[in-house]
Write a protein that binds this DNA or RNA. Structure first.
Lengths: 257, 257
DNA sequence: ACCTGAACACCGTTCAAGT
DNA sequence: ACCTGAACACCGTTCAAGT
């Protein structure tokens, strides 16, 4: 799968301008058709292209119709966010019995990276939002139960779950932001390291000069992986500490008795 | 300091409408005055309020004047980002001799959190950008030289530096995004945990139900701290591994000789 | 009852026309 | 030479008027 999950492709989703050709039962557009079209629009034109007007045009209806499907643009964005999580859950599938909690989280992190970067426009608009919808609910349950398998104390289970997901989405948003800059801004950003940082004086910026090669080659994905691994390790260590505290407490209690 | 660093307050910066009262040497606005006014605007009205038109109005000039000071809005945003880093560097000050590299990074993380959250509008617009300016250069040098003090191999020094700063800014942007939602969206987001997640069935969402109390009370700052500590620990462990590898390699070489 | 499209109050950006 | 403000091509959102 993976290749074309987003558009479950309703009536005329594949052709950009499906104005007079298709069958004419496209009166009163359904929410799902709007969401699908929004995904295509977002993928094709980036965050600046995802507007209510263009979406209406894509669906060949007046823009005011959209406002009966979604209270406002924010509601549309939340629906897109929900759908993204749905796709990710689909791709994650069932968690195999023998998979460690670490590997489950690594797999979730990879899939999240893939889809959040495939739709940078949606990521940027929703990475810090809570939808409260069914897909998000299932994702929360999946992540929490996975962190529970680690054997952390309750407060830490929640703290690490939130640290994991917020960090992951924050770094996805970082990457999405870069990949959806206007071409010229993009160039300005990309070239900064070679354009300005390669020419700093060794006298005033010795560390920068020493590391210039690595600075120009490190990738956002490598950074993402490093952050995810750091959080997994931290969770592992918290488990170890927790077990040690428990053992100590128990032996103290035994001592008393 | 800390309280009022941003507005170095030029002529009539304190009053909102300084139209006809002040002295009239405000012809031909200087870049710095524009940046200061933009900070006030951003702090007062949030990301939606930071527009070229409103900024011009604040400065009591025509909007087209701004376009001689800044090529476009992106250039203004980068200038604001530079200024933010300047303020943070100021606050960080000199690194005491006896401060460990971990504590230096903790201090930088705290100050970054404070200022990025004080100006959420600017954070959201610039958290993933590279300015290439002098303040950013000094910040890069400071962070790189601090990570060098840890004793990591070169590639890892850069990887951890980038993981540290990108994660920090990503989480600041997350927090900034929440704090600058429109009041009603804000409410919707805030209440999601109590409104929807407290009422899930224990049958289908057991882990969520088990942790509902912690889910509603964990703060963004706690998550930020947990992420920073995870990355510091990961860097510490990478150092240990590196030292062990070096020792092994050296003893192998000794064995051969 | 549903749909339409014009209108409102905004954006970033540019440029001919003024001084 | 500098400044002005009107204009262009957009936004999200609403609502009277049509069918």
């Amino acid at each position: 799968m993976a290749k074309n999950t987003a558009p479950k492709a309703p009536e005329n989703a594949e052709t950009g301008s499906a104005r007079s050709t298709g069958p004419r039962q496209r009166r009163s557009v359904r929410r799902e058709a709007a969401v699908n079209a929004a995904f295509q629009l977002a993928e094709r034109e980036g965050p600046a292209g995802l507007t209510m007007r263009k979406l209406a045009q894509e669906l060949d209806v007046d823009v005011s119709i959209l406002y009966r499907l979604f209270r406002d643009k924010d509601a549309l964005v939340l629906a897109l966010c929900e759908r993204t999580i749905e796709i990710e859950l689909d791709e994650i599938g069932d968690v195999p019995e023998e998979e460690t909690w670490q590997d489950t989280l690594r797999r979730i992190a990879d899939i999240t990276w893939a889809y959040q970067n495939r739709f940078p426009a949606i990521t940027l608009l929703s990475f810090a939002r809570t939808t409260g919808g069914p897909a998000e609910q299932r994702m929360v349950e999946l992540l929490l139960s996975t962190f529970e398998r680690a054997g952390l104390p309750p407060t830490q289970t929640v703290l690490f779950y939130r640290t994991f997901i917020d960090t992951a989405l924050g770094l996805c948003a970082h990457s999405a932001s870069l990949s959806s800059l206007a071409p010229e801004d993009r160039e300005k950003d990309d070239s900064a390291w070679t354009r300005v940082y390669s020419h700093l004086s060794e006298r005033h910026y010795p560390a920068t000069v020493r590391h210039i090669d690595d600075l120009t080659t490190v990738t956002q994905k490598a950074i993402y992986t490093a952050a995810v691994e750091a959080i997994l390790s931290a969770a592992e260590h918290a488990v170890t500490e927790h077990l040690e505290t428990e053992r100590t407490t128990r032996s103290e209690r035994t001592d008393k008795a």
